[in-house]
């Protein structure tokens, strides 16, 4: 097995975009158990996705070697990222990312960046939806923002509950503040499910939960979605809550709230991976995407099913990093 030594992993990754489809007779394959590092705790969105992939790969025999999932959540995920970063040249280690790929190094001075890893593929993007309690009088974004501004003027606090602090939920909150001039009191909780329940119990005024975290309460008639933080509406037309499908939720921009945010669910490899190795995993994920279990997962979570590899993926990640830098800088979340 020969190893291509490249000074920049990005060259290899960019080459991949072109190399796609060129099948060679004895392509690279994993020689031992493949480890998927999850830089978050058990039960979260990234963990669920990693374990679903593990199950799909096992069920459909997509890989000769087995696949295991390892959670390294410490230090807002830096433990997991540093572990992969330090496994240079180990082609049996992948990491599934969430927004902490950007927020953790920016917010805590942890010594890693997206540039340290070999990009493999973006599997999906997680949507964010603005939710309010169904008992609340505001029925659309305009009324909601008016209520928030009213509260700001009166000096009473308008509570936004979210997952973690200085992470995606709080960044979106800061972006909404900037776009509207309203002030929110951001209350951090540990998990998305808990956040949704706080909203149902009227302990908060709104949340920006992922679809999958809040859908049960929407169906139960307890929560109301106001808008989705994406450039277009979600493409799912099956009826979810009563007569309403996911596609009935308007985009925030169309409602006069110009904020967009999507969370990356993508894979990276340890540094120094060869184009051949990257290609193997890209093909693997392509196969995973064809399975009915994957389609169910996407449907349940109303994911944005963008799939990207190679140069396109790299550019997307670089752009997103810059955007996080700007958002976090404005909100004052950057580490000193």
């Amino acid at each position: 097995m020969f190893q291509l030594k490249r000074s920049s992993v990005f060259v290899a990754a960019a080459a991949l975009g072109i190399a796609l489809g060129a099948q060679t007779a004895n392509a690279w394959e994993p020689e031992k158990t493949v480890e998927i590092v999850v830089p978050a705790g058990t039960g979260g969105g990234a963990d669920q996705m990693a374990r679903a992939i593990q199950g799909i790969v096992a069920k459909h025999n997509l890989m000769k070697q087995s696949m295991i999932v390892v959670n390294k959540a410490g230090g807002a995920g830096s433990e997991g990222f540093n572990d992969v970063k330090n496994s240079k040249g180990n082609p049996h280690k992948l990491i599934i990312t969430l927004s902490n790929l950007f927020t953790t190094p920016l917010g805590t001075n942890q010594p890693f960046s997206y540039k340290d890893f070999t990009p493999v593929a973006m599997l999906a993007l997680d949507e964010f939806v603005l939710w309010v309690n169904a008992e609340k009088p505001y029925k659309n974004v305009k009324e909601y923002i008016a209520a928030a501004i009213e509260a700001t003027k009166k000096g009473s606090n308008f509570k936004m509950a979210g997952t973690g602090s200085r992470q995606e939920d709080q960044i979106i909150t800061a972006a909404i503040e900037k776009a509207t001039g309203a002030k929110f009191t951001y209350v951090p909780y540990r998990g998305g499910g808990e956040v949704a329940v706080q909203l149902v119990g009227n302990h908060a005024d709104s949340t920006v939960n992922n679809p999958i975290e809040a859908v049960a309460h929407w169906r139960g008639g307890k929560l109301r979605p106001l808008c989705v933080f994406d450039s277009k509406t979600m493409p799912y037309n099956d009826k979810v809550a009563g007569d309403l499908p996911w596609s009935s939720i308007p985009t925030c921009k169309s409602q006069g709230l110009d904020v967009e945010y999507l969370m990356l669910r993508g894979f990276f490899m340890s540094p120094g991976a060869t184009a051949e190795q990257v290609k193997y995993y890209v093909d693997l994920f392509q196969k995973v995407r064809q399975t009915p279990e994957w389609k169910d997962l996407m449907n349940n979570g109303a994911f944005n099913q963008s799939f990207m590899t190679g140069k396109e993926y790299v550019e997307w990640v670089a752009k997103e990093h810059q955007r996080h830098y700007n958002l976090m800088k404005e909100a004052g979340f950057l580490a000193n």
Partner: peptide, 26 residues
């Protein structure tokens, strides 16, 4: 309610989702 009380419960909950069962009032 869909709120896990422990890490174990969180994984169980994730399992429900995979089988198309949505924890919650419904």
């Amino acid at each position: 309610l869909g709120v896990p009380g422990s890490p174990t419960a969180a994984v169980l909950l994730g399992g429900l989702l995979i089988w198309n069962l949505q924890p919650g009032p419904m």
